[in-house]
Amino acid sequence: MKIDNSLPLEYSTEENRLKVLGFWIFLGAEIMLFATLFATYFTLFDRTAGGPTGAEIFEITPVLIETILLLTSSFTIGLGIHAMRLGNKKAMLSFFAITLLLGAGFLGFEIFEFVTYVHEGAGLQTSAFTSILLTTLGTHGAHVTLGLFWGLFIILQVKKRGLTPETANKSFIFSLYWHFLDVVWIFIFSFIYLKGMM
């Protein structure tokens, strides 16, 4: 394995560079995935069939808390990657752990939100609107859940194996994924919640 020391650790081998590019292309596919969900949402959002509308069930408080938790987690993982580039393993791991805790907090609020929706009669089967609403939010939530496990595995690996070109590469790619989920959330927040509440 040829290691190029002039580059950051996560880019230092050819294999690492391939993986970063491959992941960017994967994110391109993910954008299409969420774009399809959004397109479907915009098509179906006023087809409530007598069931609850967005304005009736959306509440600003839990949504704002979720937003703040997820945006902060995106910031902390940025700090984590910065610490990784400085070679400070301990700080990096702390920031990664904080990120995951914030992510778990986000998920907790989202589950609470889902339970409330179902109680208010906005279940998966109620109308076309609730079907696509819960599917879009659920797809994002499932991505966050997967991210929590993935992030945990990476923390364990960095802890055990230290900062090698491999673990640095994995951590960096995970941070791309996490930032991407944040970007998707901004669209969900603006175009599903804020637009729905107006």
Binding site: A29, M32, T36, L44, A49, Q125, A128, S131
Partner: peptide, 28 residues
């Protein structure tokens, strides 16, 4: 990815009773 989402929604319509493509409850 468009196919992935479309098939997932079709699956949910058939197995979980969602209303994406149905003719009632607002489906299209």
């Amino acid at each position: 990815p468009v196919l992935t989402v479309t098939l997932a929604m079709g699956t949910m319509d058939r197995l979980f009773g969602t209303n994406f493509f149905t003719t009632d409850n607002g489906g299209m």
